[in-house]
Design a protein around this nucleic acid. Structure first.
Lengths: 341, 341
DNA sequence: TATGATAATGTTACCTGTAACAAAACATGG
DNA sequence: CCATGTTTTGTTACAGGTAACATTATCATA
């Protein structure tokens, strides 16, 4: 009689191991392990016995030993700057739609746009032996680059298709997209276009650059309202009033995202300003709401979910041993005219 | 000369272990381990040497051994039915806002409203030795219940505050909320209120029940339009037309979420139907957009993010060994009158 | 029945950090 | 300079599943 057979009430029964199952059947844990991987490797009478024992004890597989011995977790790390932004929720959805059916687990982390936090989160994700990483932003500290190099796992950077990636980037050209929308508004006769910027991250800076270049190329003077806080509908309204104060003859507003644009648009409606007759308004990203509202919002449609899907697909491909196929994958954006420009 | 000292070019240098660092310094890995946990446990001259070696090799901590030997991962599993729904994005945000500063990692999974998938995802999360689980929905298969019992980790169910929880539930009373909003619309003089339901999950069923009860209590006849597909703005428009066909004198619409309501509202505007004069419209959840739009949407404001935060807080508290304080935590909802009723 | 082949099961070692115990190095006081 | 205490470092074992190798059981055929 082994001690494992004794069940005193004080002893809290911990999660059963393969050994517990094996003891119950009267075989080695190796035999049970074989059964779990391929039942046919085990004699027919044992098959039912083992199956019964597994069921009786409620055995739950344990990946820890495998992670330890093989340094493979079948999990991928996803590191995003924020979870507040709807854009990232859609990216996550895209990633999960690919990663989950492939049998990989997602470890989610975010760093609130702080470089120090980013370092810490990456270290944490690596400490769990994630098999691959999807991160965003294009600039990383030297420490982050070193950690990723040492870890030796595939890394894919998303959101931005311009900056030279660590290994592989999948994103859009934010500058070109902002240029295109600004140019579109100018072509529609707008001259005094103001840019509304929030959350001054790398992508926003790219967009501002595209906007400013387009204005300059057309001999116009850019005006950019900025804040470091997160965007919101109310911020869009606030910005509208600021813009009209600083530049009363403003005839166009291009926002760094749809939230600001919608906020500005509603503020115009409240103030009796006609959109697009008096002021044109354009957003960025093309969330569902922008296409449902009246007037339909002009916006730059970006493939957020596809970006997540593609990132996941390429990551999985590399986990299967394939080399990096394309260093930079530049996804197309689309200028949606809507009715607000 | 040990084999680990040999660095042939063919040999891909894998992630360094504590042993590698120790070898470089000329001590045991135990000493390095001590330094990492508390540098003062190590003599001053060694402190700098070890720090240098760690830096030089770019050592990254490895949680795998600890997970294996202690069966504690410092990770919690979050299992949601879907990532498409904005509600769940906000719940995740709430959870992460608590869990991350506490040094816990989030493992995210979703099951697309399928009970079999839920079983599989829970097994997977448990196989990673998550220390606790936040799951949603209130009904689970026997197998799920057994797995959770065997795993012996704290589990918190969110979204619904009515059904008897496995251990602890944090949510709202969907039926009462739907009753309250229906009653509010009736008090405002509406008689022919139609309910728009999508994604027929448990919570939707509760809401329908609340709506129907309120209608009956007021001597009115309920009419519910249902579909199993996910809700969207366009579905709201489709439902509106269906409703007007089935019941031309419809004077109120109560939607299972804001998306449907906004879709219906815009469809009314397009069709020249005045809201709220001709038809009242109410949504559910109170997303930001509902408060920004014109007219402001009447809606039931639910504390999604707080639900996530609270779930995380209670889970962490239990991970610290505290017992379940309240079996059911019923969070308050709020009827937002808006301008559309 | 003996023989070799094949199928079924068992044994051992390993992955890496750390708790627990052991030993060595060092310091202090008599 | 020894005895004793303290600090610092080393040694051993362990967690649980599985690869790799070893052994035993089974069976068909000579």
């Amino acid at each position: 009689m082994k001690s494992s057979d004794i069940k005193s009430p004080s002893m809290k029964n911990k999660r059963p191991t393969l050994q517990d199952v094996a003891d119950l059947v009267g075989v080695t844990k190796m035999t049970v392990s074989r059964f779990l991987r391929n039942p046919d490797q085990v004699s027919v009478p044992l098959q039912t016995k083992i199956a019964d024992a597994l069921e009786e004890l409620g055995y739950i597989p344990n990946r820890a030993p495998d992670i330890l011995s093989k340094s493979k977790s079948h999990a991928i790390g996803v590191l995003l700057p924020s979870l507040t932004n709807q854009v990232f929720a859609e990216v996550i959805r895209g990633i999960e739609s690919i990663v989950e059916p492939a049998g990989y687990q997602t470890m989610l982390a975010h760093y609130g746009y702080s470089k120090e936090a980013e370092e810490a989160r990456i270290a944490t994700l690596l400490s769990y032996n994630v098999d691959g990483l999807i991160i965003s932003e294009s600039y990383h500290t030297e420490r982050v680059r070193k950690m990723l190099a040492v870890a030796g796992i595939p890394v894919i950077e998303i959101m931005d298709s311009v900056s030279p990636p660590i290994e592989q980037a999948i994103g859009i050209d934010n500058e070109a997209a902002a240029y295109a929308m600004t140019d579109f508004m100018i072509k529609r006769g707008r001259q005094k276009i103001v840019y509304f910027a929030a959350r001054m991250d790398q992508r926003t800076l790219f967009k501002i650059k595209g906007y400013e270049t387009a204005m300059h190329d057309n001999g116009l003077t850019p005006l950019c309202l900025k804040t470091n806080s997160a965007s919101s509908f109310t911020l869009g309204a606030t910005f509208l009033h600021d813009a009209l104060q600083q530049q009363p003859d403003t005839d166009g507003i291009f926002c760094t995202n749809d939230d600001l644009a919608i906020g500005a648009l509603y503020a115009c409606q409240k103030a009796g300003i006609k959109v697009p007759q008096d002021i044109s308004i354009a957003g960025f990203h093309g969330h569902d709401i922008s296409r449902a509202m009246i007037p339909r919002l002009a916006t730059v449609i970006t493939p957020r979910e596809e970006m997540g899907r593609l990132a996941a697909e390429h990551l999985l491909s590399r986990l299967q041993g394939n080399p990096v196929s394309q260093t930079i994958i530049d996804l197309p954006f689309q200028i949606e005219a809507g009715e607000s420009v």
